[in-house]
Amino acid sequence: MDGGAIAAGIPFFGTLDWDFIAENTPVFIEAAGVTLNISFWGIVFSLLLGLVCAMILELRIPVARQITLAYIEISRGTPLLIQLFLIFFGLPKLGIRWSPELSAIIGLTFLGGSYMCEAIRAGLESVGSIQYESAQVLGMGRLQTMRFIVIPQAISTSLPGIVANVIFLIKESSVVSGIALADLMYQAKDLIGMTYDTAETLLLLVITYAVILLPISIIGTILERRFDYARR
């Protein structure tokens, strides 16, 4: 292997077993698929739940508002790992039985909903009432006001928070190995236990997470600049 030969000149990299890395790369690609799949659905449902919660809070719907506020505190005040254990091991005792995948997605949604709600609310609140009034004076309907005035400005404020939450949720998904899902962490621990090729496995693990998370972080920075209407 050429890359191996070059890398072998560098201390640390020189001691690595490159055949092991080549051999196990497919394992990590597959495990990355599990991580991404769970994160993707967790993020989609978190956004939906966050949007619903933000609407309830903005429109000040009685009762639902109190429930939402309590949910946000509970979701933010407990670790995902405990939420998952309660969902996956505790709820079956009440007759509610979900697969590990579904439990993980529900857990991520329960956690992510409150974070997304906060990001969305920050956007909606950044649009001052004078903007609504001005749009009305200009003869715009409510829908037009939303489409052309409020949402473009709200997005610019919400987006950095939403992207940060996306990264946060992908990172948090690393604990689903705790309920026996074969994600990246699970495979890494498995390989370390079976082969003792610890350095190689950890390198693969770090690279896989970097490959997933770095582009999102970079896209986030680009989007943040592009949508920066409000501050321009």
Partner: peptide, 19 residues
């Protein structure tokens, strides 16, 4: 920032011992 905390724990717990 970019690495999950669990990955950092693995690096120190499993990695430093062998390294």
């Amino acid at each position: 920032r970019i690495m999950p905390q669990l990955v950092l724990l693995y690096i120190v717990f499993f990695g430093l011992a062998t390294g």
